[in-house]
Design a protein around this nucleic acid. Sequence first.
DNA 1: AAGCCGGGGCC
DNA 2: GGCCCAGGCTT
Length: 364
Amino acid sequence: MVMPISSELKQNFQQNLLTWFQDQKRDLPWRRTQDPYQIWVSEVMLQQTQVDQVLPYFYRFIEAFPTVEALARASLSEVLKVWEGMGYYARARNLHTAARRIVEDYGGKIPDTFKELSQLPGIGPYTVRAILSIAYNQDYPVLDGNVIRVLCRVFHIDKDPRSGGVKKELLQLAGELLPPGKASIFNQALMELGALVCRPQRPLCLLCPLRSLCQARASGDPAALPVKTPKKTLPHYHICVGIIWKDHQVLIALRPLEGLLGGLWEFPGGKLEEGESLEACVVREVREELGIEVKVDKPFMVVKHAYTHFRITLHSFHCTYLSGDPRPLGCIDWKWVSPDDLPQYAFPKGNKKILEKLLDKSGQ
DNA sequence: AAGCCGGGGCC
DNA sequence: GGCCCAGGCTT
C-alpha cells in the first residue's frame, strides 16, 4: 500500500495543479460543453488516440450526429464512414449500440450512475469514471495513461502499473488526492498535465507545477518511470489485393463485423504464402474470398502500413474479372461499384491510399 | 493476466 | 524501425 499522504502534501498537490490548469489548459471543443453526450463521444474517441488526431473527427461526428437520438437513428455504415481512418473500429460499433440502448432504455438521457454506465458496451473502468466525473462532477478518480505516469513519477512508484494490484493502488491514490466537489476539473487537470508537461519522453519538469514535490524528479531520472515493458518486434507480412474490373466497375468486399477492421470495406486479397508469387497470391485469395476467377493485369501501387501487432506491405494489382458468381466466402458481403462511388464506403487506411490514387488517376 | 484491436507522431 | 499513446473486450 501507498504511504498515507499528509494533508499538507495533498493541498499543495491540488492547489498547484488546479492553478496551473486554469492558466494552461487547452481550449478543446468538449471543454466548451456540458452535454454528457458530447463528453461521452470525446472520451471514447480519446481511448488510445491523442487529442490532435481526435479533433477533426470529433467536429465531424457531432455535426453528423448532434444528439444521442441522431446517433441511434443512423446506420452502422454511416457511423463507420464518419469514423473511417481513426482506427479501433469496435469503438464506433459499441458507441452506436450503446446509443440505441440509451434511447431505448433511458429515454435518451446518458445514465449518471456507475452501474448503468458500466453496462453499456465500450464503457470500461476508465470511461465510466471519466463520464461521471467530467460530465456529472461526481467524485470519481480516473486512471488513464497520463494519470498513471504522473502518479508513478510524483510518488516514485517503480512497480509495473499494468498489474492489477498496482492499478488498484494508483486508483486509491488518485481518489485520496481528489478534492471533493471538484472531480471534473481535477481529473482533467491531471490528464492535461500528463499530456502537456509530464510527457512519456523528455518531460518538461521546469514547467511543472508539481516539480517541488515530485520524487522522480528528485531522484534524477523522471523519464525512467513508469517502468517500461519490453516489446517484441512486430512480424512483417506481404498482403496482395486485386482491383478487379468488370464493365468499368470494381469489386469490393465487406469484412466481418468482429475482428480486425470489422465492418469496413476492402479490395479483395490476403496474405502472401511462403514461396508464392505476388500475382498467384491475388488469384488464390480472390478465389478463396469470393469464389471467382480473375486475371492479373499489372501492378498498381505498394503501400506500407503498421498495425498494433504486425506490419504489412500492401501490393495492389489491376485485375480483370473472368468467371464465376461472387459469393461471400471470406467476407460478409460484396459489391460491384463505379470508382466514383467508392468514397461512400468506409475503408481501412491502407486501402484508402490505393483508392485515392485510383480516383486521382481516373480524374485526370 | 495476456492477447487482440488502428493509426499518427516522434526519434 | 522502435516507441509512445485520454482503453475495452475476449479468452
